[in-house]
């Protein structure tokens, strides 16, 4: 791999790692939500430092190009993450709707008690 590309990859993965950590410190995201991103960006840093890991792993599994393996794994994790997000979003929406509905019902009851 050309060294310019390697440096570029290293710098960008390091930057994204720092970005994630800083956001976590400012607590804009909940702690457990960041584990996924921290692990992922740390993995990128690791891979840009030691690309041999990817090459060896690809050989071991039997994938010709290490790049394909990296893509495959990343896509797999992203899809999984995306699905889990979608589940969470649905739950949240469901609870939100229930809350607003119950709030309306409760207020209605209180009003009824005020004016008989």
């Amino acid at each position: 791999m050309p060294s310019v590309l390697r440096i570029l990859l290293f710098v960008s993965s390091l930057l994204s790692f720092i970005f994630v950590v800083r956001r976590l410190k400012k607590s804009e995201v909940q702690l457990y939500d960041t584990t996924f991103w921290i692990t992922l960006s740390a993995l990128f840093v690791l891979l840009s430092l030691f690309p041999r890991i990817a090459i060896k792993a690809a050989e071991l599994i039997g994938i010709q190009s290490p790049v394909n393996m990296v893509f495959l794994i990343i896509i797999f994790f992203l899809l999984g993450h995306c699905f889990l997000q979608s589940l969470r979003f649905s739950h949240l929406e469901e609870r939100f709707k229930k809350l607003v509905g119950e709030d309306a019902l409760k207020n209605g009851e209180e009003k009824q008690e005020e004016d008989p």
Partner: peptide, 21 residues
């Protein structure tokens, strides 16, 4: 007699609230 959703949730939820009542 009126029940009020504080935010707009759409027809389905309005009907559901009515049914719960």
């Amino acid at each position: 007699k009126t029940l009020r959703h504080r935010v707009n949730l759409g027809l389905a939820e309005a009907v559901r609230t009515g049914m719960k009542y």
